[in-house]
């Protein structure tokens, strides 16, 4: 614990973004943090000197206009950007104080830092096999163990009652909202420590969105959640902390209430008031 806290302090002290300084000193230890993070696609600079902490068991919302770099940052946290040709990352991403780009095995990192995508992406196989894919990947073979993990994960994603009688059916037959909650269950099945959500409700109807927001509020008790959202009301409803991005830089970050009600930067005020973006 002491080590985690020290990471948070270090990031805060080193962080050049002045907006961070006052608000980052949260009592919760940082589960993940990024320090001086920069990212370039060829000549295009997508992120510049980003410093952020993601405290344990809190929901952090990343907001900002399209193309501001918030999804790119999210994809640094589990190194999905590794797949993009010509993408160069500088600075550091820390998970429990360990540099995710240097010391942590990338597959192990992705097991510990799960991700739910914008478009629901269940595999074209049965509901059971979807949820069991992760545990099987990491060596769980016994049928009874898998059964237990599948049930627990679907319960955690609040979709067990809807799906328990059709576990053998193809997951592609589910509605969009069910598919997305199945994807959350699939991500939870490998017992991640952090859950990344990349605009995970933007393709869904309002009722499904409400269900997932409720789910995120419950998940917060056990997981560290980082979510990208275009919906500012969603950030306000669900998140503990908010970071506002503009043109690849963090303009302001802090407790959600502060960011929305007493923004320190004029651009944040304009954005949350809906004046641009």
């Amino acid at each position: 614990m002491a080590e985690m806290a020290s990471v948070a302090e270090r990031v805060t002290e080193e962080g050049k973004a002045p907006a961070m300084a006052a608000s980052t000193v949260d009592l919760a230890p940082a589960k993940m943090a990024v320090a001086h993070l920069g990212l370039r696609y060829g000549d295009f600079s997508a992120l510049r000197d980003v410093n952020l902490v993601f405290p344990e068991r809190q929901v952090t919302a990343l907001i900002g206009p399209s193309g501001c770099g918030k999804s790119t940052l999210l994809r640094c946290l589990n190194r999905m950007n590794d797949l993009v040709a010509g993408c160069r990352v500088t600075g550091s991403v820390l998970l429990d104080g360990q540099d995710a780009y240097r010391f942590v095995d990338v597959n192990d990192l992705r097991r510990r830092v799960g991700m739910v995508f914008q478009q629901p992406n269940p595999f074209p196989m049965s509901i059971y096999d979807n949820v069991a894919f992760g545990p099987r990947t990491h060596g769980v073979k016994r049928r009874a163990d898998l059964d237990e993990i599948v049930e627990r994960s679907l319960r955690d994603a609040a979709i067990w009652d809807e799906l328990k009688d059709r576990l053998r059916k193809n997951a592609l037959g589910l509605s969009g909202g069910q598919q997305q909650r199945l994807c959350i269950a699939r991500a939870l099945a490998v017992r991640p420590e952090v859950l990344l959500m990349d605009e995970s409700t933007s393709a869904l109807d309002p009722i499904s969105t409400a269900k997932i927001e409720e789910l995120v509020r419950q998940l917060r008790e056990r997981y560290t959640v980082v979510m990208v959202t275009h919906n500012m009301l969603q950030a306000l409803r669900v998140s503990d902390r908010t970071a506002f991005f503009l043109m690849g830089e963090v303009v302001e970050a802090g407790p959600t209430d502060d960011v929305f009600t007493h923004p320190r930067d004029g651009r944040t005020a304009d954005y949350v008031a809906g004046r641009f973006g």
Partner: peptide, 25 residues
């Protein structure tokens, strides 16, 4: 592509993502 990325995001390596998700798909 989202199937492949989904498998990687669960911690599967390239081989497992290809043979257990992409090929069956």
């Amino acid at each position: 592509r989202r199937y492949y990325e989904g498998a990687l995001a669960l911690g599967a390596d390239h081989e497992r993502a290809v043979f257990c998700v992409v090929v069956p798909a």
